[in-house]
């Protein structure tokens, strides 16, 4: 199967800081990719390059094996690459339908008048397709739960015919039941043939939902694991630099001395990377 999206040899510098060094990235259809790494590993920079917020200093951006130029967020959106940031970018005062169609409202013909019935019908279609359950599509989104709000933000990308959906910390700040909702939603996106990228600090969630996990460390991609043949310890080791076990691209040159950080550091597995020095 051909990857939908490929990045080759991406470099990005901010002043004296090299945020990304020669990073490759790829997403296949029908696949959930986990992107993990400690704070400052370059995850956010990489995502923002994919989303068109940043332009890389060097490197190739390929969609369907064709080189494309992505310099603005609209470029990525036009290619079907949608990002759901942690703040979800919802208007709390508007109802579900208005939020889903925000900025691309359907009008009655060429008039400036909204075609509310049509938008509502399409909203219900998308919500059914994603199996999102909401009491009514006319309630303001401020009245919805965290998981429902996340679902609305994802449904918005589906309405825009996304081929790849990038989710930034989709389960942070969610309760158990809410997290379950969102993870199920991610699986349904995959089942519908989309490529999904999940950035997460929560390895339990990552192992639950992803097919492949890509580990970043200090601006490099240090490992890519097939989730079925990987243990949490291996992933944690790659994140912290205490490498052992098999990595799929071992050429990335890890200079951290083996065993410098115990591989079983529990603070990593707790899903809270903020307490890292």
């Amino acid at each position: 199967m051909e990857p939908i999206l490929q990045l080759h040899g991406i470099n990005k510098t901010f002043g004296a800081v090299q945020a990304l060094r020669n990073v490759d990235f790829e997403v296949y259809p029908h696949e959930v990719v986990g992107l993990v790494g400690d704070n400052g590993a370059g995850k956010s920079t990489l995502i923002k390059i994919i989303a068109g917020v940043y332009t890389p200093d060097s490197g190739d951006y390929l969609v369907d094996n064709k080189k494309v130029s992505v310099t603005r967020p609209q470029d990525a959106t036009n290619l079907g690459i949608e990002t759901v940031y942690q703040d979800l970018a919802l208007c709390d005062n508007l109802d579900v339908v208005s939020n889903l169609f925000l900025g691309r409202e359907e009008t009655a013909g060429r008039t400036p008048f909204l075609n509310s019935s049509d938008m509502e019908r399409r909203t219900l279609d998308v919500l059914r397709q994603l199996d999102v359950k909401i009491r009514s599509v006319h309630v303001p989104v401020s009245a919805l739960s965290g998981g429902q709000r996340q679902s609305i933000a994802v449904a918005k990308t589906i309405l825009r015919n996304a081929r790849i959906v990038i989710l930034d910390e989709p389960t942070a700040a969610l309760g158990v039941a809410q997290t379950r909702q969102v993870l199920n939603l991610i699986k349904r996106l995959r089942d519908q043939g989309l490529g999904v990228v999940v950035i997460s600090h929560n390895l339990a969630d990552v192992f639950e939902v992803v097919d492949r996990v890509i580990v970043m460390r200090l601006g490099r991609r240090v490992a890519s694991f097939d989730i079925k043949s990987t243990t949490t310890e291996q992933v944690v080791a790659a994140i912290t630099g205490a490498e052992f076990g098999e990595t799929l691209n071992g050429s990335s040159g890890l200079n951290a001395p083996v065993g410098s950080v115990p591989a079983t550091t529990t603070s990593d597995q707790s899903g809270n990377g903020n307490n890292q020095a």
Binding site: S98, L102, G103, P112, L114
Partner: peptide
Amino acid sequence: TTFGRHIYAIGGNAEASRRAG
């Protein structure tokens, strides 16, 4: 109208409205 809907949207979340184009 779309115009009116956008006024409410900006009042609710200006940054989200900007990102929505």
